[in-house]
């Protein structure tokens, strides 16, 4: 009976811990919002983060998008051929990219690249007392460090998603038309026929929400780092894992609401 009760005890504790952490992240979000509407915004810091999150992620996002589009076309082709519906390959790739894979894969790549960096950077600033130094100089750390990163995440992940959608469809086209021999006109026509603007918009709304999640969690983990270099490493790993999981879980619920 002892072992069972310890197990239940531990389970209870970990549930409590997670709920508490979610509450803290929510509180941080509220504080970010309240600093966001208080001028002056630190434009220079925001642009710097937008460059870091957006411009510097383009390469990985293009690579991810193009190969995802290509493999979707390849897989879809083999499936659809069984029903002689090869002409639907283009629209399947386009729908899959705009609704799901564009936003999800983009935000996972940005999590790995920028979310982790946010945690590492803020974590280092925490353990080397730079965050303390900010507060002492009456400069609010949330305003200086977190607001620019969250704004950059919310704005740039959708932009990157547009890029991923576009190159993904392009990748699908290059595999579908020249390699697999689907008629080019039909490929394009079916895309415009089955893909609504709403699909794209909803995908971009998802992307913005994922951008919020990954930057908020990256900053939260970094901000609450303790325990030297080891602590920074731990915060970085936890940020990537928690952000990725949160993106995938929220994706399910967003899809359920939107489509």
């Amino acid at each position: 009976m002892n072992r069972a009760s310890t197990a239940i005890d531990n389970l209870g504790r970990s549930v409590l811990r997670n709920v508490e952490e979610m509450g803290r992240i929510l509180l941080l979000f509220i504080s970010v919002l309240s600093w966001m509407i208080r001028p002056p915004l630190k434009l220079r810091l925001i642009f710097k983060q937008m460059e870091f999150v957006g411009v510097k992620s383009i390469f990985v996002v293009v690579l991810t998008g193009i190969f995802t589009g290509m493999v979707m076309a390849l897989q879809g082709y083999h499936g659809f051929r069984m029903f002689s519906a090869e002409s639907l390959v283009g629209s399947t790739v386009a729908l899959g990219m705009t609704r799901e894979l564009g936003p999800v894969l983009t935000s996972l790549m940005v999590t790995a690249r920028a979310g982790s960096a946010m945690a590492a950077e803020l974590g280092t600033m925490r353990v080397t007392e730079q965050i303390d130094a900010l507060s002492v100089m009456a400069a609010n750390p949330v305003k200086h460090l977190i607001v620019p990163r969250v704004i950059a995440g919310v704005l740039m992940v959708p932009v990157l998603t547009i890029v991923a959608d576009f190159v993904g469809i392009l990748g699908g086209y290059f595999v579908g038309v020249p390699v697999l021999g689907i008629n080019s006109g039909i490929f394009v026509k079916n895309i415009t026929r089955y893909v609504d603007l709403d699909d794209i918009y909803n995908g971009l709304i998802k992307a913005a929400i994922f951008g919020l999640i990954l930057s908020l969690i990256g900053c939260y983990k970094g901000f609450n780092t303790s325990g030297g270099a080891e602590g920074v490493g731990k915060a970085t790993t936890e940020a990537v894992v928690l952000a990725s999981i949160s993106i995938l879980i929220s994706d399910y619920f967003l899809t359920a609401i939107m489509f």
């Binding site: 600033m125 007392e129 900010l134 609010n140």
Partner: peptide
Amino acid sequence: NDKDLNEIRKKFGVLFQGAALFD
């Protein structure tokens, strides 16, 4: 509260043990 604390903090200058320069 944070606002009043900020006003008080403006009276202070602090040198941290590890310098804590913004890198």
